[in-house]
């Protein structure tokens, strides 16, 4: 069970709902993943098409919690207004807070992120900040009242996995009791398993499933990897060593030389 602002969620896999070949394939992938939380966004609605209404009906039918995001926001003001609008539309005070600072890497603007988090927490939001492994930013976010942090593994959509495992390990060690989710950059189930083995509470991914040849099958693979990684963490893995250590007992070996 992972805990998000006091809410316990069975699955440690969180899934995005974007980029799937079709809404039906998205729904199949969400079901196959076993995810209890999916991310969603807010976009301009055309009066004639009402695409958003159909999407919302489909998501509600999946019986999962939604985590709305502020994707694409580059300023504190934009992110705060988007969060306020999301709270009304989705009926949740959970918000995945993204304040983007750099276009090529979609690197979070950590200064804007802290400022926006302060504003939103004062307004009663439960903020899930999309951040980096930066320890000082993490401290500021926690001081602002964040009970969950979501450091990136690699740039969004890059599929590179955990590019700074040392930084992620350090973050985990500095905040042993905080809910930490590796969000973004995960490309393969082994990346997700590695994050879980390091003691992260959950992983959030989207592109790795949505852009797979068979998204539902990949969602299943991720579900197992996340579960395996968590089991391994709980089982307290051995420490690596430089030299060999025989696993077969030496005592009682025949002398045949």
């Amino acid at each position: 069970m992972a805990t998000f602002y006091g809410t316990e969620v069975e699955s440690r896999l969180m899934l995005g709902t974007a980029l799937y070949p079709s809404p039906a394939i998205m729904a199949a992938a969400v079901r196959a993943s076993g995810a209890g939380i999916v991310t969603v966004s807010l976009r301009r609605e055309a009066a004639e098409a009402r695409a958003g209404q159909a999407f919302w009906e489909m998501i509600r039918g999946l019986g999962v919690r939604v985590l709305p995001n502020t994707a694409g926001c580059h300023s504190v003001r934009e992110a705060v207004t988007t969060a306020q609008m999301a709270r009304e539309v989705f009926g949740t005070d959970w918000i995945k807070l993204e304040v983007i600072g750099e276009e090529d890497t979609l690197h979070p603007d950590l200064f804007g992120l802290v400022e926006a988090a302060r504003i939103l927490i004062a307004e009663g939001f439960k903020v899930f900040p999309y951040t980096t492994e930066d320890l000082v930013a993490a401290r500021r976010l926690v001081d602002a009242g964040c009970e969950v942090l979501m450091p990136w593994g690699a740039p969004i959509g890059s599929g590179q996995g955990l590019v700074n495992p040392h930084g992620l390990r350090t973050l985990r060690a500095h905040f042993p009791d905080l809910t930490l989710v590796v969000d973004a950059g995960i490309g393969l189930p082994s990346h997700a398993a590695r994050a879980m083995e390091m003691g992260f509470d959950a992983v959030l991914l989207n592109t790795a499933v949505a852009k797979a040849g068979d998204p539902a099958a990949m969602a299943r693979a991720f579900a197992r990897a996340v579960e395996a990684g968590r089991l391994a963490f709980d089982a307290d893995p051995m420490e690596p060593r430089d030299m060999a250590a025989p696993s077969t007992p030496v005592m009682g070996k025949a002398f045949l030389g």
């Binding site: 976009r43 958003g52 999407f55």
Partner: peptide, 25 residues
């Protein structure tokens, strides 16, 4: 907010954003 809409008067050139749920990562 929804319940404040009746009390808001639009003026020439105002920028109105109307947003709905959509896919997100």
């Amino acid at each position: 907010p929804r319940d404040a809409r009746a009390g808001i008067t639009l003026r020439e050139g105002d920028r109105l954003e109307v947003l709905a749920p959509l896919q997100g990562g």
